[in-house]
Nucleic acid binder design. Sequence first.
DNA 1: ATATGTGCAAACTGTTTGCACACGA
DNA 2: TCGTGTGCAAACAGTTTGCACATAT
Lengths: 127, 127
Amino acid sequence: MKRSRQREAILEILCATTSHPTADWIYDKVRERIPNISLGTVYRNLNILSENGEILKLDVGYDQSHYDGNTNPHNHFVCRRCHRISDIETEYDFNIDRIAENHFNGDIEYHTLLFYGTCNECLSENN
Amino acid sequence: MKRSRQREAILEILCATTSHPTADWIYDKVRERIPNISLGTVYRNLNILSENGEILKLDVGYDQSHYDGNTNPHNHFVCRRCHRISDIETEYDFNIDRIAENHFNGDIEYHTLLFYGTCNECLSENN
DNA sequence: ATATGTGCAAACTGTTTGCACACGA
DNA sequence: TCGTGTGCAAACAGTTTGCACATAT
């Protein structure tokens, strides 16, 4: 994997936010720094980076994919109303993969745990 | 929600399989019974049924959505090679939502737990 | 009677890709 | 130099939607 201005800018931007952005949010941000970068390049690099394990790709069921620069194991909460994603802790960041493997013939490498509901902001807007 | 031949056929087909099929697999199956049904109708009904909680929509990160007629709480395994989805048990079909809520301001309604790895079939093909 | 559902085809959206050129090691 | 990356625009795939007609209650 060669280095490129574009790839490094994308990675930096993604690691500097905790907002789990989409490709075109990232595109807008990178253009502030590299105005003629193309959306295709953003997608290409997001794919390469996530295949290499440098970032996470999150598919939560609403339209676009989201990306996360934090690769430490952690879980996510998805608001069903505003579709925003937040990090969420549990005491259960443990060997659940090994436990599941006892119930399954095959090789389990990782898991994703997504909680769905309504976030605090949307709950208060509701009233 | 009115009844319709189409919607009922879709629901029956989905409940009769454990293969977590995609919309166009279902489309092919329903056409055996209702040859002139349209793919749009299949999508429309899958959306309505999943919004009403009669079926589950699964977004696992590979192309199309998958659907599940089994709405009892259970987890899934996704093979990274063949992209097939299987049911998987853990001892942890518990109150993890309430536990997560202790770490989060907001209302948690449910969660999805997806395990990723390589299934047995793909492991043996590998050699 | 009237709201809801359907088939069809066109439209939409997020993402990927082929190409000619540019860049990094 | 040579493999990898880029910008651009066109293509693609899955899904949604507008319309006129049909069906269920």
